[in-house]
Simulated scan of single mutants.
Amino acid sequence: MSAVLFETNRSSRMSDRVQFAGSVKQNADKQWRHTLKETQLPAVPDAKSPAGADIRFIMDGTTGNMIHSTVPPGQINRATVHSTVSEFWYVLEGNGQIWRKDGTEERVTSLVPGVSIDIPVGTAFQYRNIGSQPLKFICITMPPWPGDHEAAPQDGAWVPTV
């Protein structure tokens, strides 16, 4: 999916689900602030990530975004590296692994419910589902995701299946 389609799809889907999106109010101190948002997890994926996961947009804001990712059993996603975005992940369901490599360290971490990981800017990473059920996790990007051009392909630890 192209970066333009990814971002266009994201914008239309988020505006359908985020209550009061884009609404700004001025408080008593003459400071501008965005109104509070809330969303509900969509029933179907909004897009594919550049690595190959099914993603559902949950929240966006000026400091970052949040998505729900699903990787089917046996899928090995493409390895990528981000040039401007860091990520935090929290695993909800499933059994997977993530390979991460930066300038000083390389490791494979198990992705099981309750595990959180970080992917700092410039860290190459690749992940896979090694279980019999979908691997599901929450991903927070900081700053907000700029588009698919952010994810540069890399050589990873495994041969991708997507």
Rank of each mutant, 00 (worst) to 15 (best):
Q126M: 08
D148M: 12
P143Q: 05
L111K: 02
I140F: 06
I55K: 03
R107F: 01
V81K: 13
D54R: 08
P72C: 02
T8S: 12
D46W: 06
H149P: 01
E93F: 03
Q154C: 10
V81Y: 04
R10M: 12
G52D: 11
I76D: 00
C139S: 13
S86Y: 01
T35R: 11
P160N: 02
T80D: 10
Q133F: 03
Q133E: 14
G74E: 01
N65H: 07
W99Y: 15
D102R: 06
D102K: 03
R107I: 04
P146G: 02
N129S: 10
D118M: 09
P42T: 04
V112M: 03
S69T: 11
G22F: 06
S69R: 09
P50E: 10
G156F: 02
L92V: 11
K30Y: 00
R100N: 03
R78P: 02
S49R: 05
H82D: 09
S69M: 14
Q40G: 11
M14D: 04
A151V: 04
V159T: 14
N77L: 15
W145S: 06
D29Y: 00
D155S: 12
H149L: 09
S86E: 15
A53Y: 02
E87C: 06
M66Q: 04
V115Q: 08
G22A: 02
A47Q: 13
Q26A: 01
A43Y: 04
V81L: 07
D102I: 04
N65Q: 11
L41A: 12
I138D: 01
T123P: 08
E87H: 14
S15D: 13
A157R: 13
I98G: 09
D148T: 14
G96D: 05
M66T: 10
D155N: 12
D148R: 14
G147M: 07
F6W: 10
V121S: 02
L135W: 07
T63K: 01
M59W: 09
Y127M: 14
N27G: 00
F125S: 13
F6H: 14
E106T: 09
I55V: 15
F6A: 12
I117Y: 02
R100Q: 15
R10Q: 10
R100P: 04
W158R: 07
D155Y: 00
P144L: 01
D16M: 11
A79Y: 05
W32C: 00
Q97R: 08
S11I: 07
I138Q: 03
R78V: 13
D16P: 00
D102P: 06
N9H: 05
G147W: 02
R17E: 10
G147Y: 03
L5W: 07
M59I: 01
H68C: 08
P73W: 03
P72K: 03
T70H: 03
S83M: 08
V121P: 08
P42N: 07
Y127C: 08
